[in-house]
């Protein structure tokens, strides 16, 4: 299993590097984005709370991804489809981003917002995610914006009380339903996953009969037929895994 992960990781980091160069050359919009971020990008310069701002326990990065039909499905295109929106370190900085982004319910097409701790990529391969899993809640249309806001406010405010375990959260806008999920580091830690589940119920005000699924990222790799949301969430990574021996 470790080998599998390692192989994936190597694969992907290779793709990633190549990708950043390629996309900067052939994708004008992306190039602009990369330049605009320039030296103030979260990757290059530490993001810190401003004076008199309220610091968060962790810095977080917003990502956005959108499936682009008609392009070859590969890990490369996954990497190209996911964009960093920005990193913040304080409550005020969070609102600066959030207030200037559309609500998930107003996104068009097959899109995701990801909010992950700075330094953790919203991908299974990331070291923080490779032994992890996620709680998944499927929402009927119309609920995503409110649930996403409640979910990320709970995460930023450290409401889950599971130490370092939380990696990030995702909202996936799909055609028939929307999906929110929260990722944690250690899928085998049942006390943690139970606490996350209970906190989710509380902060989202979920009805008692709400179906909540926990899916380990390893299971998502091993059991393609039961992936459910994984294909729409990460269609391109999915392809990568199919090819892994």
């Amino acid at each position: 299993m470790n080998n599998k992960f390692d192989a994936l990781k190597d694969d992907d980091s290779g793709d990633h590097d190549q990708n950043e160069e390629n996309s900067a050359q052939k994708d004008g919009e992306k190039e602009k984005t990369e330049r605009d971020k320039g030296p103030s990008s979260g990757k290059r310069k530490a993001v810190v709370p401003g004076p008199a701002e309220h610091p968060l326990q962790y810095n977080y990065t917003f990502w956005y991804s959108r499936r682009t039909p008609g392009r070859p499905t590969s890990s490369q295109s996954y990497e190209q489809n996911i964009k960093q929106i920005g990193t913040f370190a304080s409550v005020e900085q969070f609102w600066r981003f959030y207030s200037h982004m559309v609500r998930p319910g107003d996104l068009t097409g097959h899109s995701d917002f990801h909010l992950f701790k700075e330094g953790i990529k919203p991908m299974w391969e990331d070291d923080a995610n490779k032994n992890g899993g996620k709680w998944i809640i499927r929402l009927r249309k119309g609920l995503a914006s409110r649930c996403w806001e409640n979910l990320i406010l709970a995460m930023l405010g450290e409401q889950f009380m599971v130490g370092e375990e939380i990696c990030g959260a995702v909202v996936s806008v799909r055609f028939q339903e929307d999906i929110i999920s929260i990722w944690n580091k250690t899928a085998s830690d049942q006390a943690t996953t139970a606490r996350i589940r209970d906190t989710l119920r509380r902060v989202l005000n979920l009805p008692p009969n709400t179906v909540m699924e926990y899916k380990t990222h390893t299971d998502s790799i091993k059991m393609p037929g039961r992936l459910g949301p994984q294909r729409p969430l990460f269609p391109n990574l999915w392809k990568t895994r199919v090819n892994v021996p």
Partner: peptide, 19 residues
């Protein structure tokens, strides 16, 4: 301060700017 857009907010129409 929370109402000012971040300096480095990328322009993603439909996401960070009007659709």
């Amino acid at each position: 301060v929370a109402k000012t857009p971040p300096r480095d907010l990328p322009t993603i129409p439909g996401v960070t700017s009007p659709a």
